[in-house]
Amino acid sequence: MSQQPLAPAALDDAASQRSQVASDAVGAVIEAPRPGQTIEAVHLDPTRSAVRHELPEDVELALALNNVSVFYGAFQAVDRISLQIPRNRVTALIGPSGCGKSTLLRCLNRMNDLIPSARVEGHIRFGELDLLSPKIDAVDVRRRIGMVFQKPNPFPKSIYENVAFGARINGYSGDMDRLVEDALRRAALWDEVRDDLGKSGLALSGGQQQRLCIARAIAVQPEVILMDEPASALDPVATLKIEDLMRELAEDYTIVVVTHNMQQAGRVSDFTAFLLAGEERTGRLVEFGPTTEIFTNPTDPRTEDYITGRYG
């Protein structure tokens, strides 16, 4: 599937086409449930082993997760997930609420360290490093693997300071004005704020705030940018801008995005991982592969049910 950004008018069309494709793939077996009809026999069992599609030959890996489990005290939030995140591509983590997507994402830059009861097992390879090793400095990991959060959370400081802060505390000694301008340009925000960089970051609109947060993440020159439902608090137009931005940023950065908007995953991502949690709310990987294959030709029946909208 080509990943060119879509104009807003084309969105509905594209979505309907895709669902058309999806239901074609399922064939006549699934019919749209009539009102009052109970849906039965959706495939929900999360304990079955995961399906991993072959990755294309030409991708390099940015991160490799090996049997990553996350515990909050006695509760296990994520169970032995293994997947590879290709460099300079957009990888989407999808799945219903509470399936451990965000938890998994927060492992990748050791954000879970901030929660006293959290414990992460397994290995995450990042270049030569094992991110989960206690010898690794979490602060350095977070500089190299940036993050954008669900709710825009600019610092209550000026726009300039928002962008410059990360670089400054990491000892950046170059031309700060240029760095700020460059980061804001890359985040497609420069033209809107160039004349009032001294204004509070909180004075911007929601979508602008989120792009400011992206600029803030870019300014420390990370290798990977993690996005935790970056558009879920935004309106459709702002969402579209963020999605465009993700496609552009993927040329230089590895992007991992959590979303429970399937259309969004279809629009922006190159690869998709589908996670699912059972009754005990422990998230497991169901299927991982190129987005086109996951959306048009899912191998696992659980993925198929989710993609076709039978639940979730």
């Binding site: 901030l114 602060v139 977070r142 954008v148 959370n153 420390v220």
Partner: peptide, 27 residues
Amino acid sequence: VPPSMREAAYAVGATRWQVIRHHVLPY
């Protein structure tokens, strides 16, 4: 102090003291 603000500062590679000094204390 909202946790989201601490997270934002940690996510750009701030140390605990930097988070406190630049964000938590002013707030």
